[in-house]
């Protein structure tokens, strides 16, 4: 932290990460708003507990910390859902979060579920998808893993009696780096309006372990995978671009004048438009006098909607 004129301190990444100045937020206010949001959503839905899938990465770690801050760690269940090839460090980091928070934590290996569908390429065992499943692409396998994890989370939400809290951040939601009905699914999302750089800022403020803040973001679908090498961007630069494009409504010409690489700008525009379907509820063919989402418009948490 470096001091500025009025005595308040200018937030920086403090050496942990690169924080573009225009993205810096007051983390105290953010934490306060999010805590009220989590409590309000749960209360309106008639729940007191929450469940979070911990990957070992920063997004889900931060969500676990925020939920624990909002409702108390004793009301939080963290599920660790590794596949055979998931990095062992991911599991260690997730376990650290559970230990530090003192919340309930459970391990559910998803390997049998995934293998039962795709089969085992290493042994030749054919799964429910048939022989073709043995050669499924990494994207297909990753999507199925994300959806199986969400299947488990929603099932355990019944036995735990808590809502599933989402862990998608604004950056990945905007570029569509999510699996629809997989990691993008949730009952409520406290960090969906925070860019990755802001996730890091709040994570540092709330005390997420430094090893988790420092490590390169990864979907952990194959050994050594990272978001930034896979997609060819750096999060601070992409976050800045998205901030000026989306939040500050700058045109392509204005973005290029600001120094953003034309290739990155075009890539982002295409990624955003191409993933619009992931951010919205599926359209219903309009036939009757009142149609949900079109001209039948009620708040999700309307009177009578709470679980009793």
């Amino acid at each position: 932290m470096s001091a500025i004129g009025d005595g308040r301190s200018m937030p920086t990444g403090a050496g942990l990460f690169d924080l573009p100045p225009e993205l810096a937020i007051d983390t105290d206010v953010a934490r306060r708003v999010i805590a009220e949001f989590v409590r309000g959503q749960l209360r309106q839905a008639g729940f007191e507990r929450a469940i979070v899938g911990l990957s070992g990465g920063i997004d889900s770690a931060l969500v676990a910390y925020l939920v624990a801050e909002a409702i108390g760690a004793e009301r939080l269940l963290c599920l660790m859902l590794p596949y055979r090839t998931s990095a062992s460090s991911s599991r260690t980091d997730a376990e650290t979060v559970v230990e530090r928070l003192g919340c309930a934590g459970e391990l559910v290996e998803i390997s049998p579920m995934v293998d039962a569908y795709f089969g085992r390429p290493d042994t030749g065992l054919v799964g429910a998808a048939g022989p073709e499943g043995l050669t499924a692409s990494a994207v297909r396998r990753g999507n199925v893993m994300a959806r199986i994890r969400m299947t488990v989370l929603y099932d355990r939400s019944v036995t735990w009696g808590g809502l599933v809290v989402g862990t998608s951040n604004k950056t990945e939601a905007l570029i569509g780096y999510t699996t629809i009905f997989g990691d993008a699914a949730s009952a409520l999302n406290p960090i969906g309006d925070l860019y990755k750089s802001q996730v890091r800022q709040v994570a540092a403020a709330i005390g997420v372990p430094e090893t988790i803040i420092r490590k390169a973001p990864s979907a952990d679908l194959w050994p050594g995978q990272t978001d930034e090498t896979e997609a060819g961007f750096s999060y601070p630069e992409l976050d800045r671009l998205l901030f000026w494009l989306v939040d500050r409504r700058r045109s392509v010409e204005e973005l290029e004048a600001k120094g953003f690489a034309p290739g990155l700008v075009q890539w982002a525009l295409k990624a955003i438009a191409g993933s619009e379907f992931k951010r919205q509820v599926a359209p219903i063919a309009k036939l009757g006098p009142r149609t949900a989402g079109v001209d039948y418009l009620y708040p999700r948490r309307r009177p009578g909607s709470a679980r009793t």
């Binding site: 500025i4 308040r8 200018m10 937030p11 810096a24 937020i25 007051d26 105290d28 206010v29 953010a30 708003v33």
Partner: peptide, 13 residues
């Protein structure tokens, strides 16, 4: 509705 969190204004909002 509170929005536009910021780091450097008077009260962070």
């Amino acid at each position: 509705p509170g929005r536009d969190l910021a780091a450097l204004n008077e009260i962070g909002l």
